[in-house]
Write a protein that binds this DNA or RNA. Structure first.
Lengths: 202, 202
DNA sequence: CCGGTAGGTTACCTGTAGTAAGTTACCGCC
DNA sequence: GGCGGTAACTTACTACAGGTAACCTACCGG
């Protein structure tokens, strides 16, 4: 506690890896809270306890920082859902478990998930993101192949996109309706994507 | 052709309504092409043939301009789909026609539709947008009420969100796969939302 | 022909992304 | 133990875009 008498804590030197994690943590928090546009690099730097050029050394640009933050979050989400699907039994259960895992992540790591929504600000420049996204849809597609065999590849791709988009919007809707449980959301997804509307209609 | 010898055309005075339309046209084009962040107000002003403060008088801020552009586009999209649904016959046909109209709009008015994707940059500040969105989901919900009677309101809301999100992503996917026709896309949506996956699985 | 106003401009301020050049703490080595 | 070398870091700037205050001018009714 040599520096406890000062208000400002002494700036600590760190290894690259630790610094990077710390920067991403701060960026995730602050991007989620205020949105990409409203945050200045200066503010992030101050919160990290470091000066602005450090951020540029690590991430090249503000977009680069957002990109890295999104990439990390998407990776975590991908891991969680992939595991859930792998551990489930029947085809129906795999689908339901995947949905559940998605909405659970969205609830437990709200900040990480909110950052994913900032993706469109990157425009078409998101090469690195495209890879992680494809990995995401590929998981769904590979599951589909055994789930509904014989469908053309194109159809499976379309289904994957539909499911991803639907989950995203439904998660957003759930934020506005907090009394909807994770199980409810997964159930609603099953209603449409598993059973379809036809059996319900007169 | 009095001014044909000059490179710059003479700046024309206009009525408010005409100017506003013109500004929105330019904004739509340029936001769709380059993305919100990469466009400067100066550039838009020049393309309109007017000075920057005019844009601020009409729309208050850059976000305000984006908001107005999105609102107009969403209005057009809403009209088109609502009409298509109203004119269709059976429940199944209403759903299919709605999808068709959506993807047709997405194809014919690509620029307007691309602007809609920029919405997330507005963060939570999109009060005015929220109204148009609700109008959109309300259309779906009201159709659903007669389509699948007896479901709780909450479920219908969820279905509407799912459909909106799914259409959005599928339209994006279609842009990357131009050989997928409008009918294909609508068909894929029907596969999941009308028939569901269950009848297809072993 | 003249004054009021809608429609318009010039010239500026502020704040933030991004950078060049210099500085400090730490670590291996003689 | 002191002395490079280098990795981690800072200060002090530039450039540019969003936003605004103050001023201008074409047109129209009386």
């Amino acid at each position: 506690m040599r520096y406890s008498s000062h208000v400002k804590t002494k700036r600590v030197r760190m290894s690259r890896a630790d610094r990077e994690r710390q920067m991403l943590d701060v960026a995730e928090e602050v991007f989620a809270e205020q949105g990409y546009a409203s945050v200045s690099m200066e503010e992030i730097a101050v919160r990290v306890g470091v000066s602005k050029p450090m951020l540029y050394e690590y991430f090249g640009s503000k977009e680069g920082l957002l990109l890295a933050t999104i990439a990390r979050a998407r990776g975590e989400l991908g891991e969680v859902t992939a595991r859930a699907v792998a551990e489930a039994g029947s085809a129906e259960d795999k689908l339901y478990s995947g949905y559940l895992a998605y909405f659970r992540f969205n609830e437990a790591h709200r900040r990480a998930w909110l950052v994913l929504l900032q993706e469109p600000v990157l425009g078409g420049a998101a090469e690195e993101i495209e890879a992680t996204r494809r990995q995401q849809t590929d998981l769904i597609i590979s599951q589909m192949e055994s789930l509904v065999p014989g469908r053309p590849r194109r159809a499976l791709e379309a289904y994957a996109e539909i499911i991803v988009g639907a989950c995203e919007r439904l998660a957003l809707w759930r934020m506005r309706n907090p009394d909807v449980t994770v199980e409810d959301a997964a159930r609603h997804m099953m209603d449409l994507t598993w059973n379809g509307l036809a059996p319900l209609s007169g």
